[in-house]
Design a protein around this nucleic acid. Structure first.
Lengths: 116, 116
DNA sequence: ACTACATATGAACAACTGTTCATATGAGGT
DNA sequence: ACCTCATATGAACAGTTGTTCATATGTAGT
Protein backbone atom coordinates (compact mmCIF):
# COMPACT_ATOMS: atom_id res chain seq x y z
CA UNK A 1 0.00 0.00 0.00
CA UNK A 2 1.89 3.03 -1.26
CA UNK A 3 1.91 6.23 0.73
CA UNK A 4 0.68 8.32 -2.17
CA UNK A 5 -2.49 6.34 -2.67
CA UNK A 6 -5.85 7.40 -1.30
CA UNK A 7 -4.87 10.66 0.27
CA UNK A 8 -8.47 11.69 0.48
CA UNK A 9 -8.72 8.93 3.01
CA UNK A 10 -12.01 10.03 4.45
CA UNK A 11 -13.95 10.67 1.32
CA UNK A 12 -16.61 8.17 2.34
CA UNK A 13 -16.10 7.73 6.07
CA UNK A 14 -19.66 6.72 6.95
CA UNK A 15 -19.91 3.92 4.44
CA UNK A 16 -16.45 2.77 5.40
CA UNK A 17 -17.51 2.45 9.02
CA UNK A 18 -20.71 0.67 8.05
CA UNK A 19 -18.81 -1.69 5.79
CA UNK A 20 -16.27 -2.42 8.51
CA UNK A 21 -19.01 -3.36 10.91
CA UNK A 22 -20.33 -5.86 8.34
CA UNK A 23 -17.01 -7.71 8.25
CA UNK A 24 -16.98 -11.29 9.45
CA UNK A 25 -14.14 -13.02 11.25
CA UNK A 26 -11.20 -14.40 9.30
CA UNK A 27 -12.25 -17.89 10.36
CA UNK A 28 -15.64 -17.45 8.73
CA UNK A 29 -14.12 -16.29 5.47
CA UNK A 30 -11.65 -19.16 5.60
CA UNK A 31 -14.37 -21.68 6.23
CA UNK A 32 -16.53 -20.39 3.40
CA UNK A 33 -13.49 -20.26 1.17
CA UNK A 34 -12.66 -23.87 1.97
CA UNK A 35 -16.22 -24.97 1.34
CA UNK A 36 -16.48 -23.19 -2.00
CA UNK A 37 -13.06 -24.50 -3.04
CA UNK A 38 -14.39 -28.01 -2.56
CA UNK A 39 -17.25 -27.39 -4.96
CA UNK A 40 -15.22 -25.38 -7.45
CA UNK A 41 -13.67 -28.27 -9.31
CA UNK A 42 -15.58 -29.86 -12.21
CA UNK A 43 -14.63 -33.40 -11.20
CA UNK A 44 -15.86 -32.91 -7.66
CA UNK A 45 -19.02 -31.21 -8.92
CA UNK A 46 -19.66 -34.22 -11.11
CA UNK A 47 -19.16 -36.54 -8.15
CA UNK A 48 -21.48 -34.49 -5.97
CA UNK A 49 -24.02 -34.42 -8.76
CA UNK A 50 -24.18 -38.18 -9.24
CA UNK A 51 -24.22 -38.77 -5.49
CA UNK A 52 -27.18 -36.43 -5.16
CA UNK A 53 -29.85 -39.13 -4.81
CA UNK A 54 -27.87 -42.32 -4.21
CA UNK A 55 -24.72 -43.89 -2.89
CA UNK A 56 -22.10 -45.21 -5.28
CA UNK A 57 -18.90 -47.15 -4.87
CA UNK A 58 -15.59 -45.98 -6.30
CA UNK A 59 -15.91 -48.25 -9.32
CA UNK A 60 -19.36 -46.91 -10.11
CA UNK A 61 -17.98 -43.38 -9.87
CA UNK A 62 -15.12 -44.23 -12.21
CA UNK A 63 -17.53 -45.49 -14.83
CA UNK A 64 -20.04 -42.68 -14.47
CA UNK A 65 -17.54 -39.83 -14.39
CA UNK A 66 -15.05 -41.45 -16.80
CA UNK A 67 -12.13 -40.61 -14.55
CA UNK A 68 -9.27 -42.81 -13.40
CA UNK A 69 -9.53 -44.77 -10.17
CA UNK A 70 -6.73 -42.75 -8.61
CA UNK A 71 -8.18 -39.37 -9.56
CA UNK A 72 -11.58 -40.32 -8.15
CA UNK A 73 -10.07 -41.71 -5.00
CA UNK A 74 -8.01 -38.58 -4.37
CA UNK A 75 -11.03 -36.34 -4.83
CA UNK A 76 -13.21 -38.52 -2.62
CA UNK A 77 -10.54 -38.30 0.02
CA UNK A 78 -10.67 -34.50 -0.06
CA UNK A 79 -14.45 -34.45 -0.04
CA UNK A 80 -14.46 -36.77 2.94
CA UNK A 81 -11.86 -34.81 4.89
CA UNK A 82 -13.98 -31.71 4.51
CA UNK A 83 -17.14 -33.61 5.49
CA UNK A 84 -18.99 -33.12 2.23
CA UNK A 85 -19.32 -36.86 1.73
CA UNK A 86 -19.31 -39.88 4.00
CA UNK A 87 -18.40 -43.49 3.23
CA UNK A 88 -19.46 -46.98 4.26
CA UNK A 89 -17.47 -50.10 3.60
CA UNK A 90 -19.43 -53.13 2.48
CA UNK A 91 -17.44 -56.16 1.43
CA UNK A 92 -14.79 -55.14 -1.06
CA UNK A 93 -16.58 -51.93 -1.95
CA UNK A 94 -16.64 -48.54 -0.29
CA UNK A 95 -19.88 -46.66 -0.87
CA UNK A 96 -19.90 -42.88 -0.85
CA UNK A 97 -22.83 -40.55 -0.29
CA UNK A 98 -23.42 -36.89 0.47
CA UNK A 99 -22.96 -36.03 4.10
CA UNK A 100 -25.52 -33.27 4.62
CA UNK A 101 -28.05 -31.12 2.88
CA UNK A 102 -26.07 -27.89 2.62
CA UNK A 103 -24.13 -29.27 -0.32
CA UNK A 104 -27.36 -30.12 -2.11
CA UNK A 105 -28.87 -26.70 -1.48
CA UNK A 106 -25.86 -24.78 -2.70
CA UNK A 107 -25.39 -27.07 -5.68
CA UNK A 108 -29.02 -26.58 -6.70
CA UNK A 109 -28.78 -22.84 -6.39
CA UNK A 110 -25.63 -22.65 -8.47
CA UNK A 111 -27.29 -24.84 -11.06
CA UNK A 112 -30.23 -22.46 -11.26
CA UNK A 113 -27.78 -19.59 -11.61
CA UNK A 114 -26.06 -21.45 -14.42
CA UNK A 115 -29.35 -21.58 -16.32
CA UNK A 116 -30.14 -17.88 -16.44
CA UNK B 1 -7.48 -46.36 -15.92
CA UNK B 2 -5.80 -49.72 -15.61
CA UNK B 3 -7.27 -52.81 -17.24
CA UNK B 4 -7.24 -54.82 -14.04
CA UNK B 5 -9.48 -52.42 -12.16
CA UNK B 6 -13.22 -52.95 -11.78
CA UNK B 7 -13.58 -56.21 -13.60
CA UNK B 8 -16.96 -56.70 -12.08
CA UNK B 9 -17.93 -53.81 -14.22
CA UNK B 10 -21.64 -54.29 -13.91
CA UNK B 11 -21.95 -54.84 -10.23
CA UNK B 12 -24.42 -51.99 -9.92
CA UNK B 13 -25.67 -51.44 -13.45
CA UNK B 14 -29.02 -49.89 -12.60
CA UNK B 15 -27.63 -47.21 -10.33
CA UNK B 16 -24.89 -46.54 -12.85
CA UNK B 17 -27.45 -45.91 -15.56
CA UNK B 18 -29.52 -43.72 -13.25
CA UNK B 19 -26.45 -41.77 -12.21
CA UNK B 20 -25.40 -41.32 -15.82
CA UNK B 21 -28.77 -39.87 -16.69
CA UNK B 22 -28.34 -37.32 -13.88
CA UNK B 23 -25.12 -35.99 -15.41
CA UNK B 24 -25.12 -32.42 -16.61
CA UNK B 25 -23.23 -31.07 -19.58
CA UNK B 26 -19.56 -30.21 -19.26
CA UNK B 27 -20.46 -26.57 -19.85
CA UNK B 28 -22.73 -26.57 -16.81
CA UNK B 29 -20.04 -28.06 -14.59
CA UNK B 30 -17.52 -25.59 -15.95
CA UNK B 31 -19.82 -22.68 -15.33
CA UNK B 32 -20.59 -23.75 -11.79
CA UNK B 33 -16.92 -24.41 -11.22
CA UNK B 34 -16.02 -20.94 -12.44
CA UNK B 35 -18.68 -19.34 -10.27
CA UNK B 36 -17.60 -21.20 -7.13
CA UNK B 37 -13.95 -20.44 -7.84
CA UNK B 38 -14.82 -16.76 -7.77
CA UNK B 39 -16.27 -17.03 -4.29
CA UNK B 40 -13.64 -19.41 -2.97
CA UNK B 41 -10.99 -16.84 -2.16
CA UNK B 42 -11.08 -15.09 1.23
CA UNK B 43 -10.19 -11.70 -0.25
CA UNK B 44 -12.99 -11.88 -2.78
CA UNK B 45 -15.40 -13.14 -0.14
CA UNK B 46 -14.51 -10.12 1.96
CA UNK B 47 -15.11 -7.83 -0.99
CA UNK B 48 -18.46 -9.43 -1.74
CA UNK B 49 -19.38 -9.21 1.91
CA UNK B 50 -18.72 -5.49 2.24
CA UNK B 51 -20.43 -4.78 -1.08
CA UNK B 52 -23.51 -6.63 0.13
CA UNK B 53 -25.60 -3.56 0.93
CA UNK B 54 -23.71 -0.68 -0.65
CA UNK B 55 -21.35 0.43 -3.35
CA UNK B 56 -17.75 1.26 -2.52
CA UNK B 57 -14.85 2.73 -4.47
CA UNK B 58 -11.47 1.05 -4.69
CA UNK B 59 -10.02 3.25 -1.97
CA UNK B 60 -12.85 2.41 0.39
CA UNK B 61 -12.29 -1.26 -0.30
CA UNK B 62 -8.56 -0.92 0.38
CA UNK B 63 -9.26 0.57 3.76
CA UNK B 64 -12.03 -1.80 4.75
CA UNK B 65 -10.30 -4.98 3.64
CA UNK B 66 -6.78 -3.84 4.54
CA UNK B 67 -5.40 -5.03 1.23
CA UNK B 68 -3.10 -3.26 -1.21
CA UNK B 69 -4.55 -1.19 -4.02
CA UNK B 70 -3.15 -3.53 -6.62
CA UNK B 71 -4.45 -6.69 -4.97
CA UNK B 72 -7.94 -5.20 -4.66
CA UNK B 73 -7.90 -3.97 -8.21
CA UNK B 74 -6.84 -7.33 -9.60
CA UNK B 75 -9.58 -9.10 -7.69
CA UNK B 76 -12.21 -6.58 -8.72
CA UNK B 77 -11.14 -7.09 -12.29
CA UNK B 78 -11.77 -10.84 -12.00
CA UNK B 79 -15.09 -10.33 -10.24
CA UNK B 80 -16.14 -7.95 -12.97
CA UNK B 81 -15.06 -10.20 -15.83
CA UNK B 82 -17.21 -12.95 -14.36
CA UNK B 83 -20.11 -10.56 -13.85
CA UNK B 84 -20.31 -10.89 -10.09
CA UNK B 85 -19.80 -7.16 -9.67
CA UNK B 86 -20.42 -4.10 -11.79
CA UNK B 87 -18.75 -0.71 -11.70
CA UNK B 88 -19.63 2.90 -12.26
CA UNK B 89 -17.14 5.69 -12.79
CA UNK B 90 -17.87 8.95 -11.00
CA UNK B 91 -15.20 11.60 -11.11
CA UNK B 92 -11.87 10.13 -10.15
CA UNK B 93 -13.49 7.20 -8.36
CA UNK B 94 -14.82 3.91 -9.63
CA UNK B 95 -17.64 2.52 -7.53
CA UNK B 96 -18.23 -1.20 -7.36
CA UNK B 97 -21.39 -3.06 -6.39
CA UNK B 98 -22.79 -6.57 -6.62
CA UNK B 99 -24.21 -7.36 -10.01
CA UNK B 100 -27.09 -9.70 -9.17
CA UNK B 101 -28.79 -11.49 -6.34
CA UNK B 102 -27.41 -14.98 -6.91
CA UNK B 103 -24.16 -14.02 -5.27
CA UNK B 104 -26.01 -12.75 -2.23
CA UNK B 105 -28.14 -15.88 -1.95
CA UNK B 106 -25.24 -18.28 -2.19
CA UNK B 107 -23.09 -16.19 0.12
CA UNK B 108 -25.84 -16.18 2.73
CA UNK B 109 -26.34 -19.88 2.49
CA UNK B 110 -22.65 -20.63 2.86
CA UNK B 111 -22.55 -18.32 5.84
CA UNK B 112 -25.38 -20.25 7.49
CA UNK B 113 -23.52 -23.45 6.75
CA UNK B 114 -20.42 -21.98 8.38
CA UNK B 115 -22.39 -21.45 11.58
CA UNK B 116 -23.58 -25.03 12.17
C1' DA C 1 -0.33 21.73 -20.82
C1' DC C 2 0.99 20.31 -16.20
C1' DT C 3 0.37 18.06 -11.87
C1' DA C 4 -1.80 15.13 -8.52
C1' DC C 5 -4.59 11.55 -7.51
C1' DA C 6 -7.48 7.10 -8.37
C1' DT C 7 -7.44 3.03 -10.70
C1' DA C 8 -5.73 -0.55 -13.98
C1' DT C 9 -2.43 -3.67 -15.73
C1' DG C 10 1.74 -6.55 -16.94
C1' DA C 11 5.56 -9.35 -15.36
C1' DA C 12 7.52 -12.17 -11.92
C1' DC C 13 7.27 -15.35 -8.27
C1' DA C 14 5.76 -18.42 -4.62
C1' DA C 15 2.12 -21.30 -3.19
C1' DC C 16 -1.43 -24.41 -4.25
C1' DT C 17 -4.17 -27.91 -7.02
C1' DG C 18 -5.36 -31.93 -9.86
C1' DT C 19 -3.75 -35.57 -12.47
C1' DT C 20 -0.84 -39.62 -13.42
C1' DC C 21 2.11 -43.36 -12.22
C1' DA C 22 3.64 -46.67 -9.12
C1' DT C 23 2.75 -49.04 -5.22
C1' DA C 24 0.52 -50.12 -0.70
C1' DT C 25 -3.39 -51.76 2.05
C1' DG C 26 -7.10 -54.57 3.08
C1' DA C 27 -11.06 -57.70 2.31
C1' DG C 28 -13.08 -62.18 0.08
C1' DG C 29 -12.82 -66.31 -1.99
C1' DT C 30 -10.19 -70.49 -2.72
C1' DA D 1 -1.75 -68.97 3.35
C1' DC D 2 -2.45 -67.30 -1.16
C1' DC D 3 -4.39 -64.76 -4.87
C1' DT D 4 -7.37 -61.35 -6.74
C1' DC D 5 -9.90 -57.41 -6.76
C1' DA D 6 -11.32 -52.67 -4.78
C1' DT D 7 -9.59 -48.79 -2.82
C1' DA D 8 -6.01 -45.67 -0.85
C1' DT D 9 -1.85 -43.12 -0.91
C1' DG D 10 2.76 -40.95 -1.91
C1' DA D 11 5.78 -38.67 -5.19
C1' DA D 12 6.30 -36.04 -9.19
C1' DC D 13 4.84 -32.74 -12.45
C1' DA D 14 2.24 -29.30 -15.02
C1' DG D 15 -1.04 -25.84 -14.71
C1' DT D 16 -3.34 -22.31 -12.10
C1' DT D 17 -3.84 -18.58 -8.66
C1' DG D 18 -2.93 -14.48 -5.65
C1' DT D 19 0.23 -11.22 -4.31
C1' DT D 20 3.82 -7.66 -5.02
C1' DC D 21 6.36 -4.36 -7.63
C1' DA D 22 6.71 -1.22 -11.22
C1' DT D 23 4.42 1.34 -14.36
C1' DA D 24 0.54 2.88 -17.35
C1' DT D 25 -3.95 5.13 -18.00
C1' DG D 26 -7.27 8.48 -17.27
C1' DT D 27 -9.71 12.27 -14.85
C1' DA D 28 -9.88 16.89 -12.35
C1' DG D 29 -8.16 20.97 -11.04
C1' DT D 30 -4.88 24.63 -11.90
Amino acid sequence: MKADVCKEFFTHPQVIEAAKSDLLSDEEYDYMSMFFKMVSDPTRLKIINVLFDRELCVCDLMIVTEMSQSAISHQLSKLKQTRLVKSVKRGKNVFYSLNDDHVRQIFRQAQEHARE
